[in-house]
Amino acid sequence: MNGDVVLDVLVGIFLVAGGLLSLVAGIGLIRFPDVLSRMHSATKPQVLGVLLILLALAMSLRNGADLGTLVLIGGFQLSTAPLAAQMIGRAAYRTGRVHRESLDVDELADRSGTAHDRGE
């Protein structure tokens, strides 16, 4: 009985933490100056936020079969978010959507446009 209460409290904590991280990701989306920095908030806090909520869900369901599905969802999140971010980052850089003023160093610019014929 006591263990259940502890678990429920943990579920609540994880849910709130996940919501908080999602909110932070949203704030980052609004405040950051360009696509590249916005993607930082779309990957790290957002993925962790979703993972925390999934973890809370797993602790609340306490069921083997559902756990498998949740692991699958978490795995999809972990593996696809960086992939999509990388594609977006590449497209953003190639189409020149980079906020130059906030960029201190750009070692990719030194590479003289070879990226275009190497892509696919």
């Binding site: 932070v24 590249l36 790290k44 806090p45 960029l103 160093v105 990719l108």
Partner: peptide
């Protein structure tokens, strides 16, 4: 590190001022 990175990005998002960035090879 995922937790640290998330908190870091979150802090950068809410603190005043714009962050300085870089592209490193």
């Amino acid at each position: 590190e995922l937790v640290v990175a998330s908190v870091h990005v979150g802090w950068v998002a809410v603190r005043p001022g714009q962050p300085r960035n870089a592209i490193v090879a």
